[in-house]
Design a protein around this nucleic acid. Structure first.
Lengths: 340, 340
DNA sequence: TTGTAGGCGTTATCAG
DNA sequence: CTGATAACGCCTACAA
């Protein structure tokens, strides 16, 4: 049997109230009493039961995190890490709800399993339905978006501007003289509206091309282990090889470069390639890409949420973090036509 | 104010016991009553409070996961994913305790923050002190090891045989005629005994070399963003370039291959390279490596733990999962001396 | 099949 | 500074 607060109180010749205070508000307890209690607690292997505390508090100290995707993806695992780095020390636990399809999502928002069972719901990276958001928020649970839209569906939101970031990339390529640029988009089997960033990036590409009078070419690959081969096949059967390739994410760009080189295309001499995310591999191979820092986003979000839950006014409700174009060695000036 | 079980009971003209049963043991409630209760619950936006249930049960429904490292590492995030895929649906939450140093570890095991606050403690991938393990287990909390030693410190354990797996790799290289083989080990800033698998792999390399009368060469790189450059520098300043390179993990091998090629070394024509893990990038570039499946390990561990917590006898206490050598395109027969 | 009542371990309030 | 006591919301014997 576990020892409880009663055992300690008895053994230490104090009331349970004093034991509780010793842990909760030590400053209200005389040092002598406190030491006695702590000694007994130590001896009896006692510590306050979080379940009981949580129960009596009425707060759940649980944060629901909806994940649309492989949990272990680059983005998601870093978001989690950032969130947990703040939440865990503050006594909150994260509870991961897998949302793989629109159906999952609908079911989540109609049964609201988090009702009374989570202090907040965090939605990274997918579009949300205004009605659903409203339904959740009407239960008093704040809804927080990370790279998600529309902003006004959320109590708080934090994001990067994927569209703008991709425009940066395209502008970079254009300034290097590229005019034949191909964009590779990764199609997910699951519902695409669960992948908010993906569509934003493609849109940014299209917009920037249009503004510069360039005919954009967007190619799709399905998100499976053959995605790079799919990309390569499409590239090599193009009537005109592009001079630059924009990939939706590093995880496509890195192996693509590898394979292009195997097929005799030198990067960036023959063709420039860009990524998005700034992953470890991007840094290692010198990929030109966009740096975003999901871990930081998670940590900031967590801090805001805690502040909100503690009843403070949150100054910034909707924040957009800056990103950085990392100009490295996989992009170079387009070869002049005369060189061909 | 949240509605509670009382409100529902009143509104539905039944006792709270009936409401509770409607959710807990629906089969014990007359269909008519049940429907009535559910209707009222729906109307009042009620659902059972997990906090209260957990509290009253006495179980915490929380599983502590000690992580030694970047949470978002390939291995750890997949372990988490596997664990959560089983735990979450079963009503358990994972609570991540960061253990970055021996000090953190000591402090964890001396203050035992999980005492009464977790149903089990999971330790992936680092060595554990028998005394500490005993201390924890004496509180009645099971301790589970994933790729951790020594086995008898744990209530349950599940692992791959890193040492044996690396021997497989070396044997493969030897069978291809390689005799000059270099092993690259990744040194972690944090205490090395927190990295159990790493030392096992290096040991496997040494053992297999010795058994084949080969003089082993182990080189270290520090785990920062320059690790690949460190490896390359060491390689290129060697009196004798090896014919094969064994990397402790894919994340070193993949960019190393990339850079070797930039320096004019063709893989595998000039030099063979192997990895360990079988990550996405390994598959994409055709790296010869060892496949391990941490997600599966996590899922199996979770199932066992739940079974244990439910009081069932667990048949297999210590399980070693098989791994698979993935022979791909980065290894080839060693060039005969005459060719040089 | 349903209701009654006790108890889970803590915290907060209020009195001393 | 400390003690007594009433919640907190649910579950489960046990009784009806």
């Amino acid at each position: 049997m576990q020892t409880n607060i009663n055992d300690v109180a008895q053994q230490a010749n104090v009331s349970i109230a004093t034991v509780s205070r010793t842990f909760r508000h030590p400053e209200l307890v005389a040092k002598k009493t406190r030491d006695k209690v702590l000694a007994v607690a130590e001896e009896l292997n006692f510590s306050i039961s979080r379940s009981a505390t949580i129960f009596q508090t009425g707060q759940s100290f649980r944060i629901a995190l909806l994940l649309n995707d492989q949990f272990a993806s680059w983005f998601n695992s870093r978001i989690f890490e950032g969130l947990d780095s703040v939440f865990h020390p503050a006594g909150y636990d994260l509870s991961v709800y897998p949302i793989a399809s629109q159906n999952d999502r609908r079911s989540f928002f109609s049964t609201l399993p988090v009702r009374r069972n989570a202090d907040a719901v965090i939605v990274p990276s997918f579009n949300i339905d205004l009605g659903e958001a409203e339904r959740l928020r009407s239960t008093g649970i704040p809804l927080i978006g990370i790279n998600a839209l529309p902003a006004d569906a959320f109590t708080l939101s934090i994001a990067i501007d994927d569209k703008q970031a991709m425009r940066l990339v395209v502008r970079h390529l254009i300034s290097l003289g590229h005019r034949r640029i191909t964009f590779f988009r990764v199609k997910h089997d699951s519902d695409s509206s669960l992948k908010f960033s993906a569509s934003q990036r493609a849109q940014g590409f299209l917009d920037e091309c249009r503004d510069n009078g360039i005919a954009p070419l967007v190619l799709d690959v399905v998100e499976d282990d053959s995605r790079v081969d799919q990309a390569l096949t499409q590239l090599l059967t193009l009537p005109d090889m592009p001079t630059a390739i924009c990939c939706q994410q590093d995880s496509l760009a890195v192996p693509l470069i590898f394979k292009l080189q195997q097929y005799g295309y030198e990067v960036p001499r023959d063709i420039s390639v860009t990524g998005f995310d700034d992953t470890y591999y991007a840094r290692q191979i010198g990929l030109t890409t966009v740096r975003q820092q999901p871990r930081t986003m998670g940590a900031i979000a967590a801090k805001r949420i805690i502040s909100l839950l503690e009843g403070n006014d949150v100054e910034t409700k909707h924040e957009v973090l800056p990103v950085q174009l990392m100009f490295r060695t996989t992009t170079a000036p387009a070869r002049r036509l005369a060189d061909d």
